[in-house]
Design a protein around this nucleic acid. Structure first.
Lengths: 338, 338
DNA sequence: TTGTAAGCGTTATCAG
DNA sequence: CTGATAACGCTTACAA
């Protein structure tokens, strides 16, 4: 079933399509009689305008593009789900539609083409890494409306959460609860969020006058930031436990790693949190039911995504690229694991 | 930056826009010289056609609609993520775009409007419950191309996984491994998949000549199928443990419930799997790292979604509503919890 | 108050 | 080979 066109409706009612359009627009220059005639007809046969026609003639596109990269598997990440939720809500509230794209690596040229084809009016780009900043700036230079989530780039509206503070909070808590030897699994070095979390970790140690012990900081040397070693956690745990002074606490840059190492530590006969405390990052839903339930740092990703989408809509509809950058605060959530 | 139009390009090169269009289409009726001229220009200034214009004049819409309902929170479900992955891949492979919609409850009228507006060429509808079948059929009657995932409706291309078999496999395994008193948490009674899983459970019991014990079957009496009681698992565990003969195994209709009850059972001093074995359903990623790691039934949701999207594309491009229904097989995955 | 004309950027068809 | 004409369905501005 496809909607009738204005022309067809007009023909049926023996008036011009423009008059029908006027009634639809609530234009006051329509006689009562004609208006009544049209409204009566529309009640029976709802009219739905052709969106492409509208976009073409008005030049306005009410579709937001949300781009995930790192392959479709990225969609399993908690932040991706929360991002979709926040963006969906904002879009719906403002009458925008959401188009979802997945790319293996961030492909700014593809984004540019999507924008030039007018399929989307702008982009929400979550978790752009440093290595892609130059491409984002290039898009911006080409006047493509865009906003960032979970990363911060000067000159582009960014909606991030302070990862340094997050890492600091987690580490400080571990220190406050009496832990002496705190290790960190901080993932791949190109992962900018993790680098900031590590910086917060360092800051907390420094504040207590504690020396940073190199062996306690376990990086992932996988191929690239989207593709870690399969057995990164396994290797890290092995190395840490083999140390002369193994850690009595571990802070991981995300919950997934935390679950993995808890599982491994248990197998190695360690009790969590008695022998080793663990704090994760993200607050994914399963934290609650895991055993021990996972202490972690929560980020308001959904709110960030909502704010980002709202701002993008403002940029699109105003045509001005004002900077709406806003930082959100992470929150430490204490459970059993630390 | 917005693409030049054919007209603009034509004007710059002193030829008509139609000739430019011909070069783009690789039409053979273009002189070598003209073609070279145009191609040279296009190399420098890539041309991207206006998608709305193309859709309007061609009448073809290369956008698939994927609709989730149960509110945005549904997006956190594992099946939603896998569905998005599968659909994304199929769409990309066939040159289609993906538009994502979230509705609180399935709203067939909104779907109809989206289709009539030509924003999307058809729909992929995951996990449609019985109560909505009539609306789906109504859409079909109105010639809206659509396919279903994770549910089966006669007359509509459906891509489901046999839940009866899944429930049967899980229960049979528990029986085979010596469990005598098997309970089931089967969620809300409007949840059709869970009802089938329960049927498989019953079938396995029956096959062994075992009586179905009513108290062992714990339903969720939450408000509706999308909104369970907050403390459903808690209540269920309490009731089961209070029985004169408490169960020595529990089969849950999804992994989430399994995690929750394992956590509760541990708190109540039970050892899993020694005292009580648990089998879940879904095989979400955390099954592996949970402790004990969770035995469960896996469904190839991503493959189902891929097949569904592919079929939808066939239906759209052929204009014929052939039935591509296909059933997938669940797989029992044994880990520590049972 | 209503109808007309022009334009949005394509595609398809026809004439030259 | 190339250009012109019409059509897709709507919006905006102008004329009656």
């Amino acid at each position: 079933m496809t909607s009738e066109t204005l022309k067809e409706i007009g023909k049926k009612l023996n008036i011009s399509r423009f008059t029908v359009a006027r009634v639809l627009k609530n234009d006051k220059y329509v006689s009562k009689k004609t208006r009544a005639l049209v409204l009566k007809y529309l009640k029976k046969t709802p009219y739905v305008p052709n969106a492409h026609s509208t976009m073409l003639s008005s030049g306005k596109v009410n579709v937001l593009g949300l781009v995930f990269f790192g392959g479709v598997s990225m969609l399993t990440e908690f932040y991706a789900q929360e991002t979709i939720k926040g963006v969906s809500e904002a879009a719906k509230r403002k009458g925008y539609q959401l188009m979802l794209f997945t790319q293996d690596k961030f492909d700014s040229f593809e984004c540019l083409k999507l924008y030039m084809s007018r399929l989307v009016a702008g982009f929400i780009l979550p978790s752009i890494g440093k290595e892609n900043f130059k491409y984002v700036l290039e898009l911006k230079r080409k006047k493509v409306p865009l906003v960032l989530i979970c990363s911060h780039l000067k000159g582009v509206s960014s909606f991030g959460c302070d990862n340094v503070v997050g890492g600091y909070l987690a580490t400080k808590y571990l220190l406050d609860s009496g832990r002496k030897r705190i290790a960190s699994l901080c993932g791949h070095k190109n992962w900018i969020d993790a680098a900031d979390r590590l910086e917060g970790y360092k800051k907390a140690l420094e504040e207590r006058g504690k020396q940073l012990i190199k062996e306690y900081v376990q990086h992932d040397y996988g191929y690239d930031s989207y593709d870690s070693y399969d057995n990164y956690e396994e290797m890290a745990v092995k190395k840490l436990l083999a140390l002369k002074e193994p850690p009595d606490a571990i802070f991981t840059a995300n919950d997934k790693m935390a679950f993995a190492i808890i599982s491994l530590l248990k197998k190695a006969g360690r009790n969590i949190p008695r022998d080793i405390a663990v704090v994760g990052y993200d607050n994914v839903p399963i934290c609650e039911d895991f055993s021990p339930s996972l202490s972690t740092v929560a980020q308001p990703i959904k709110d960030m995504a909502f704010a980002a989408a709202e701002s993008l809509i403002k940029i699109i509809s105003s045509g001005k690229t004002k900077d709406y950058t806003r930082f959100f605060k992470p929150e430490l959530i204490i459970r059993q694991s630390a």
